[in-house]
Design a protein around this nucleic acid. Sequence first.
DNA 1: CGAGTTTTATAACGGTGTCCCGATACGATG
DNA 2: CATCGTATCGGGACACCGTTATAAAACTCG
Lengths: 204, 204
Amino acid sequence: MSRYDVPVPRPKTHDDALRVRLLDRAGELLSTEGPSALSLRRLAADVNTSTTAVYSLFGGKPALLDALYQEAFRRFAERLEAVAHTDDPVEDLVRIGLAYRCGALADPQFYLVMFSKVVPDFKPSEQTDALAACAFRPAVAAARRAVESGAYAEDVAPEQIALAMWGLVHGLVSLELNGNLPAGLEIAPVFERALRAQADGWRA
Amino acid sequence: MSRYDVPVPRPKTHDDALRVRLLDRAGELLSTEGPSALSLRRLAADVNTSTTAVYSLFGGKPALLDALYQEAFRRFAERLEAVAHTDDPVEDLVRIGLAYRCGALADPQFYLVMFSKVVPDFKPSEQTDALAACAFRPAVAAARRAVESGAYAEDVAPEQIALAMWGLVHGLVSLELNGNLPAGLEIAPVFERALRAQADGWRA
DNA sequence: CGAGTTTTATAACGGTGTCCCGATACGATG
DNA sequence: CATCGTATCGGGACACCGTTATAAAACTCG
C-alpha cells in the first residue's frame, strides 16, 4: 500500500467484463437448463475461469442470484412501464396484467428466480427489494388514475387495488408455470376474464 | 422358493410403520427448520435407519417429497371442505378464500412444498395431481351454487370463477410468504377486500 | 532488479443425493 | 433339527455441490 492508503488497484482479470460474462452465462443456464444446471463449477468452467471469480466479483452463489434477480426485475419493470396508457385507467390495469403474464411466460426460469425459492437460503438484499417495488409502480399509478377518474371509490388506496391485481396475476401465472392448473383448460381467456372481474369488482 | 414361484416375501423392517415415521419426521424437519434441513442422511439418522430405507420405501428424495406433497394437499383439502355453507354462495367463496390463507399460514413450509419448487427436479406424480384437483373442488362447488342461485351469469363456467379465486388467494399468499409484499402494509384487510372485489366482479 | 503485495487458480473440506455390494437373517426344504 | 437359498438391509463409494484456505503467479514500486 502506498502512503496515506491511496488505493491503487492492481490489474485484475476478474474485471467488470468477466462479471457480465458470468451473469450472461448464468442467465442462459437458468433459462435453457433450469436452476439445477446453474452450479458455480459449471458456470466458471463455461466462461473459462475459476469458482473464485464468483466469490471475488459477487461474494457467493446467493449474491450471484441476487444480481440475476435485480436484472430480472429491471427487465420486468421495463415491460410493465412500456404498457401504453389509454383513456380508460381500468383498461390500463387489465393491460398491465396481460403484459405481466407475457413477461413471465417469456422467461419462466427468471420468473421463478424472482418469486419462487429456487435456491435455498436466498434472501434478496434491500436494494433488490427497492427494485421490486419499482416494478409495482405502474400498477399503482394506473389504480390511482382510476380512482381519480371516479371509476373507483375515493376511500380505497390505489396500493390496495394494485396489490389485488398483482396477487391475481402472480397467482395465476405461478400456477401456470408450476403446472398446478387443472388439465384441459385454456388459460389465456380465463386469465383475461379474471383480470376484468377483479378490475370491475373494485368499481364504486 | 416353494413350487410354482409363489412369492412369499421375507420379513422386512422397512415396513409401513417406518414409512410413516419417516414421513412424520420429514414433515417436522420441513416445518421447524425449513427445506434445507431435510436431507436423507439427517432424516435417516433421526429415525434410526439408513438412507436405503428412503429408497426402498419411496424411491428417492423426489418421491419422498411427492408423498409429503400428497399429505399436505390432503390436509389442505380437508380444511377447505370443512368451511360451512351459508345461504349466500358468494360469501362461501370468500370464506373458502380466507380458509385458504389460514391453511397456508398455519404451515408455510408445507405450502411452499406444494406450490413452490423447494426441491430441484421435483415433479408431482399423476396421482398427486389428482389430489390437488380435489382441493380445488370446494371452490368450484361454491361457484356452481353461485351460478345456480343467479348471482353469476349462467354462461360462465364455475371452474373459471373458482380458478380466478384460487389464483388470487394463491398469489397473495405466495407474495406474503416470500416476503415480496411492500413493507408497512396490513395484509389481512387487503386480502379480504380483494377477495370480495373478485367475488363481486363476476356478478351478472 | 529485487521486495512486497495483490490476484488468481488449485485443491481441500464438509455436505448432498444416489447406488452398489457384501453381510445377515429369515423361510423353506431335506 | 440342520442346511441352504434368497430377499433385505446398512455401510461405504461415487460424483457433485458451495465454500474456503493456500500457495503460486504477476504486477507495482522503491
